[in-house]
């Protein structure tokens, strides 16, 4: 039993959860008032859009690509949601669906032309930002009523963000890790040639994964507007790096199709809480980005140690 518990695979799998638990314990110790319904609600609120964006990034990572445009794309969705979706719902819905279609098209383009996804998505990030600025030149707009209602939902006993995070993790876990086609999607990250040789279409797989990234990026932007109630093109600029960091923190890897939806959600929550933790320590916001980086390095160093222990065996 202890051998199973101490196996590198198990350690690696529980590392994200353990780091989250430690961080949470430290926060509770520093500021006991956070250990309440309202406290948790306030702290974890903003983790929901970040978790959704991290899941989007994870889909792209799963097929050995990287999305540098997710932050700008979430910003675009936020601007559409705060303006068109309120004033002219059909136009808003069309604009959001167009976003997913563009993502699917990028997947096809990257696969067919064998382009580096980093370059394509970096370019796209400027396109999304530009379109977002055209839609909403200065901060403003309002949130559609139903989204605000959903995000401010006062659930009994367990705060809404915790329920939402659990639902996201479970749904994506079942879809990607438990279904038959999900294993083909992950296999395409592990050994694309084997998947190709077994007669599956790699093009279709890339399109599906990028479209899923577009879908979850869209959900992230909408959730964000539900919380902030007004939009801005740069509202989610940090999300690109946060989503990559969150996914990696949660046990996903850049290549090889090794991903973990639950880990990605936990990673996103950990990063959000790291911000709160640092404010409770009265560290000035100027230092917070660097301090978040330090936490990230700490957790990744732990993972590297576990991996090294595995190689020695």
């Amino acid at each position: 039993m202890t051998r199973v518990l101490l196996a590198p695979r198990t350690l690696r799998a529980i590392l994200p959860a353990v780091s989250l638990a430690l961080l949470l314990a430290a926060i509770f110790w520093l500021q006991p008032r956070t250990m309440s319904y309202t406290g948790l609600n306030l702290m974890l609120n903003l983790a929901i859009p970040i978790a959704l964006a991290t899941i989007a990034q994870m889909f792209v990572l799963c097929v050995n690509e990287l999305d540098l445009s997710i932050g700008a794309y979430v910003g675009y969705v936020a601007c559409v949601t705060a303006t068109w979706l309120v004033d002219n719902p059909p136009l808003g819905i069309a604009a959001l669906l167009a976003g997913i279609l563009v993502y699917a098209g990028l997947g096809a383009l990257i696969h067919l032309r064998n382009l580096p996804s980093i370059v394509v998505t970096l370019g796209m990030s400027f396109v999304w930002l530009g379109v977002a600025v055209l839609i909403l030149p200065r901060p403003g707009g309002t949130s559609p009523e139903w989204i605000r209602w959903l995000m401010k939902l006062h659930t009994p006993v367990v705060p809404f963000p915790i329920i939402a995070a659990t639902v996201i993790a479970v749904v994506v876990h079942v879809a990607l890790m438990r279904t038959a086609y999900g294993s083909i999607l992950r296999g395409a990250g592990g050994n694309p040639r084997a998947i190709d040789r077994a007669g599956w279409s790699l093009l279709k797989i890339k399109v599906v994964m990028f479209a899923l990234a577009g879908l979850f990026g869209m959900l992230a932007g909408m959730a964000l507007i539900g919380l902030t109630t007004s939009g801005d093109a740069n509202i989610a600029a940090r999300y690109t790096l946060l989503s990559i960091a969150g996914a990696i923190l949660g046990g996903c890897e850049f290549v090889g199709g090794r991903v973990s939806p639950a880990g990605a959600v936990i990673g996103a929550i950990t990063l959000t809480l790291a911000g709160s933790f640092l404010s409770f320590l009265r560290i000035s916001p100027d230092w917070q980005i660097g301090a978040t980086g330090a936490i990230l390095i700490l957790v990744l160093a732990l993972r590297a140690l576990i991996n090294r222990a595995e190689e020695r065996r």
Binding site: A180, S183, R186, G187, G190, R197, G199, G257
Partner: peptide, 30 residues
Amino acid sequence: VVTAQRHGIRCVFQELSLCPNLTVAENARV
């Protein structure tokens, strides 16, 4: 590949064609 498989022709290539990130059962499903 699809035609070959539909006619019951299988190949074990010299360099392995399993996905290392999937389980044995998932690889069978591939």
